[in-house]
Design a protein around this nucleic acid. Sequence first.
DNA 1: GCATAAGCGGAGTCAGACTCATCTTATGGA
DNA 2: TCCATAAGATGAGTCTGACTCCGCTTATGC
Lengths: 192, 192
Amino acid sequence: MSSSRPLRADARRNREALLTAAREAFLSKEADAHVEDIARSAGVAVGTLYRHFETREALIEEVYRQEVDELCAAPAELLDRHAPDEALRRFLLLLVEHAAVGKGMAVALGSIMATDSPVFDDARRQMAQALDRLLDAGSVAGSIRGDVGGRTLLRALGAICGMHATDGWTDEAVRITAILFDGLRCGVRNPG
Amino acid sequence: MSSSRPLRADARRNREALLTAAREAFLSKEADAHVEDIARSAGVAVGTLYRHFETREALIEEVYRQEVDELCAAPAELLDRHAPDEALRRFLLLLVEHAAVGKGMAVALGSIMATDSPVFDDARRQMAQALDRLLDAGSVAGSIRGDVGGRTLLRALGAICGMHATDGWTDEAVRITAILFDGLRCGVRNPG
DNA sequence: GCATAAGCGGAGTCAGACTCATCTTATGGA
DNA sequence: TCCATAAGATGAGTCTGACTCCGCTTATGC
């Protein structure tokens, strides 16, 4: 699909429009968005949507992947500016806040989780690496325990972010993340 | 639905059969179970299923509520047998292991989360109370920090349990929960 | 310009949740 | 014990929303 020939200009434009419309729909919509609506608001027909994306899930996946790419650029920059543990703390909160934007996205991702998509695995690996970078730095500096890997931590975060309940979700997610962070530090007593 | 007259004998029997079939389906099935299948394996027609449960989600909700009821009986017993922090630790792990049984259930719950069901809110309140009981006991004993409420902790746990990914999920969930628990203790240094 | 293959539209198919008109049976009173 | 009757069961049919398919349109390379 992406290899042989470059996409025709109109096709590339439509593809972008679909991704934009989808991102908007998943981030803002009350419940889960319908393909027909996404296609319409991208100014194309459903057939076009399905030419670019195998299934509804594939479209969601692609939106998700783009988000992940953006996020995974952060650790390097954070480590430049802050001490490792502070960088880690900020990254955790960044993830939570980012995830907090859209409930629809979380619901959508829930349905993907059930399908064991390889794309999803890739994203996981990528995110785990980003976290490992921060954890390793913290471990070397002696401020973060060394027995927790990025994969494990990611699972925790993905979990927290995946749980979008009704009211003040963000506040709670931030608190939970702070607790998790306290659990990761060493040489510091938790508040009593 | 539950007030005026007691259910007719056959109706009660069918209702039970449906709940049993549904629980089995959600706990064992690869993906999400279809109403037709649940009805069939309960030995009734779909119409009967819908006589007892407004929607597919309502059925899932009821199964979930029963599970929650069972779980919420645990804290009292644990506090009888163990110190508060140990009781809390055990309860957290109990929740995780319990949730680990069924992937289908988690997926099913995901779809309910999007509907703001009051039943779901009740369950949340009930679980939060169960956790509060343990947290308060720990706080009084001085072994658990006092600034985290059951609601917050529940969100974290529900999140962790809601995240059923492909491979060795249970192990990771247990590890995450242990980290979370470390974050909740006071007067103890985390391993480095 | 033209040929042609890539891309698009949108009515149609299909699956699965849900309904309703009709038949069946538990139950309480004579 | 039997009957009246309302509660309950049934399953073919409806409806909705994801996905398909084929004829039409148009970008692109010569």
